[in-house]
Amino acid sequence: MTPAISVILPVRDGGDWLREAVDSVRAQSFGDFELLLIDDGSTDDAIARLPPDARLRVLANPGRGLVAALNHGMAQAQGAFLARMDADDRCRPQRFERQLALLAARPEVAICGVQVELLQPDGGPPPPGGLAYRQWLNALCEPADIARELFIEAPLPHPGWLIRRTAWTRVGPYRDGPWPEDYDWLLRAHLAGLTMAKPADGVLLDWREHPQRLTRRDPRCARANLIAVKAPALAVVLGGREVLLWGATKTGGRLHDALTAQGVRIRAFVDLDPRKRAGRKRDLPVLAPEAASAHADAAILVTVSQGAKKPAIRTQLAALGRREGIDWWFAT
């Protein structure tokens, strides 16, 4: 009998955390799933120590690396819904039930994420440094909010996805590039017109924060590579409009270069600092914020990353008559 959900869980040397991850899937209140565990060249015995379960299938990765493992799992999946899970995280018991309920109630949503809690490696409470990031992620539940802030970074943590098979077919497999494969996939889904949302009534995934996590050690997650993957998508969304880059920062310079390579014309930089306005950046003028009113036809991309400054920037741009997600975006 075909399961409703196929859970794709790639692993290489999962250690003790793998059992926790698998047990959390097996304990779901919605039990009509298959769990595809894709072994990406493990050398430990974590997989062999898992308890038997008719819903669990272990597959060998025919390629090498995470992207190959993910695509192999997706190709073998039988369910109408495709869920992601990682070997070092834990699902809350009602995760699938509540995600499916959202997708049933809102047929326009193609990709369902989750609110998360961050854990220490030992399962303890979240580290203080991750609180702002967690708050940002968990505040983005409605499609408009997710789309508005998609160009900051991935607003749906990868191990929490539940997507319709039709969405996967429309977007296509993960691409193996010098950037995070999940962020690239979400950007392509956005350009394809697919809608994303999350249940807003509580945490459904415990996301383990540790030094070995890919987002901490994989060079594909470096800021320069995040800019490289978002620039082509930004070029499409901009639709030929010229751009003001708000923030004469290092990130602003990198985004200038990446967008220019995509054929986007950068008109000027904008910055609050009068010392920066005294010079030029990338041989372009650096304007005061109030000067942006003379460039009403240009889109604005904000490259300021400090969260504390974002409310003031939103206020300034609203005063200029700019609409977030239409006339301007955060693109840090």
Rank of each mutant, 00 (worst) to 15 (best):
F33H: 13
M74I: 09
D327P: 03
P128V: 00
P52L: 05
P180C: 05
L156Q: 04
T332V: 14
A308V: 14
D39Y: 08
W161Q: 05
T303Q: 11
R134I: 01
K309W: 13
L287N: 10
E117D: 15
K309D: 11
F81L: 02
F330V: 01
A68R: 10
T195L: 04
M1Q: 09
A87V: 04
S24A: 11
A248P: 05
R55V: 00
P121L: 08
V114F: 06
A21P: 11
G321P: 02
V229I: 12
G279W: 15
R267I: 06
V270L: 15
D122K: 06
P311S: 11
P128S: 01
P10R: 11
V203C: 14
W168C: 09
L226S: 03
G79I: 00
A331T: 14
D16Y: 03
L156Y: 06
R217P: 00
P10M: 04
D201K: 03
G15I: 00
D86N: 13
H190Y: 14
L118G: 14
A294T: 02
Q78A: 03
G63E: 14
A110I: 06
Q316F: 12
A312N: 08
L238I: 01
A261F: 03
D13S: 00
R280P: 02
L137Q: 08
A27C: 13
F269K: 05
Q76E: 15
D145W: 00
K310A: 04
N61Q: 10
K230S: 02
F30S: 07
E142I: 00
S42E: 11
T249Y: 14
G177W: 10
A233N: 03
A231T: 02
Q306I: 12
K310M: 06
R223Q: 13
H210W: 09
W179C: 10
T303G: 13
I326A: 14
D327L: 02
L255N: 11
E181K: 07
G321A: 09
H295D: 13
C141S: 11
P289M: 08
R265T: 14
W185F: 03
L18G: 03
V171H: 08
L140P: 04
A235M: 04
E290R: 09
A261L: 10
Q306C: 09
V67S: 10
D327N: 02
W161N: 04
E153R: 06
V237N: 05
V229M: 06
G129N: 03
A189C: 12
W17R: 15
H210G: 09
E117Y: 12
G31N: 13
A60M: 07
A4D: 10
L119C: 14
C221A: 09
I152N: 14
L137I: 14
G321N: 08
D184C: 03
D122P: 05
L205V: 15
K310W: 03
D40G: 11
L66H: 13
L50R: 01
G160C: 11
E34N: 12
G15W: 07
E324A: 06
A154C: 07
P211N: 08
W328D: 00
R323T: 08
D122M: 12
G193Y: 01
G65D: 13
P199F: 09
I266W: 07
N138T: 04
K276C: 08
C91K: 02
P173R: 05
R95I: 06
T166A: 15
Q120P: 00
D23S: 14
R267L: 14
A291G: 06
I227T: 00
L234M: 07
R165W: 09
R92I: 03
D145T: 00
D53V: 00
P155E: 01
G253M: 12
L191N: 04
